[in-house]
């Protein structure tokens, strides 16, 4: 199976471990990711906060590139995914906008590319059962809470994925890996996103609320599918020790599949996850 892959800017820098683990895991599960040639930034929050048209045009450029490949598109970063999916939704449902964008981006929209988050691609194309079958080292004893954040599931009419109030896709994967996913009420709360740099007090408040809730639920770690969530959860906390690291779900799949690169990914975290994994005999 082959999919186009739009990693996004963060996966080339602050979220390198997500990119590395996503590529390794997909390859090991038989899903070939072909990086879009010459992809551009999706514009993220900055485009939709300042220029609506630009916020549809930039991701549409990537839609145009994906269309040329003839493959469906997988996007690991929740923010990029949301922008591309929203652009696709606009192109499908708003004729006036589609015509404007076709003129600006200079392409003809054919509506043949399905846009998936990497999580959705793995769930629908590979499946939880197949992931479970590939587990070599079950993550026994690891108790986590799954944090989906905002953009993976909202707005529901655009994402059309899972339940927007109580999603279960990540929980199902975590269970398939042999770990325990603890129910909690903060699955789809916001981490503060890009306010981290401009209003770190706001993000620190939001993140600490999440960490306290995770601790209260009895979690040892958090699992995310978004580089903004992961970096805010590890960066914007009062004290950075080794408690409650935030894993990308692909890192946990890789760990359970005993892929050789795991160590490299974990070294990149701001909260070192090794003491936790060692205490459970899941890492050397």
């Amino acid at each position: 199976m082959k999919l186009s892959y739009f990693p996004g800017c963060s996966l080339g820098s602050t979220a390198k471990e997500y990119d590395y683990s996503a590529r390794s895991v997909c390859q090991a599960l038989g899903m070939e990711l072909v990086e879009l040639k010459d992809w551009v930034c999706c514009g993220a929050t900055s485009a939709h906060s300042t220029n609506h048209l630009l916020s549809i045009a930039l991701p549409s450029r990537n839609l145009a590139l994906a269309q040329e490949t003839g493959l469906d598109l997988a996007v690991p970063c929740s923010a990029c995914y949301n922008r591309v999916k929203k652009a696709d939704y606009n192109m499908r449902h708003n004729d006036e906008m589609r015509q404007k964008i076709e003129e600006i981006v200079e392409f003809k929209y054919r509506g043949q590319v399905n846009v998936y988050s990497l999580l959705e691609a793995l769930i629908t194309k590979i499946g939880v059962e197949a992931i479970a079958k590939n587990v070599k080292k079950p993550l026994k004893g690891l108790k986590v809470v799954c944090f989906y954040g905002c953009l993976l599931v909202r707005p529901p009419e655009v994402t059309c994925f899972d339940n927007s109030e109580n999603p279960v896709a990540l929980d199902n994967i975590v269970k398939a890996l042999g770990a325990e996913s603890i129910p909690w009420s903060y699955k789809t709360d916001c981490c503060g996103a890009n306010l981290g740099l401009t209003s770190s007090n706001v993000v620190q408040g939001m993140v600490n609320r999440l960490l306290e809730a995770a601790k209260e639920a009895g979690a040892m770690a958090l699992v995310t599918a978004c580089p903004l969530c992961q970096s805010n959860l590890e960066m914007r906390r009062k004290e950075r020790g080794t408690d409650l690291p935030a894993f990308y779900f692909t890192e946990l799949i890789g760990l359970a599949m005993d892929l050789p690169d795991c160590r490299k990914w974990f070294n990149l975290h701001l909260i070192n996850p090794k003491p936790l994994l060692q205490s459970l005999s899941l890492a050397d």
Binding site: C9, W39, C41, G43, S46, L54, N194, L197, T198
Partner: peptide, 18 residues
Amino acid sequence: LFHSVFLNSARAHGRVHE
């Protein structure tokens, strides 16, 4: 200001250089 700096980076390189 953050949004402007972010978009200037995207405009200059095609991708944001964090």
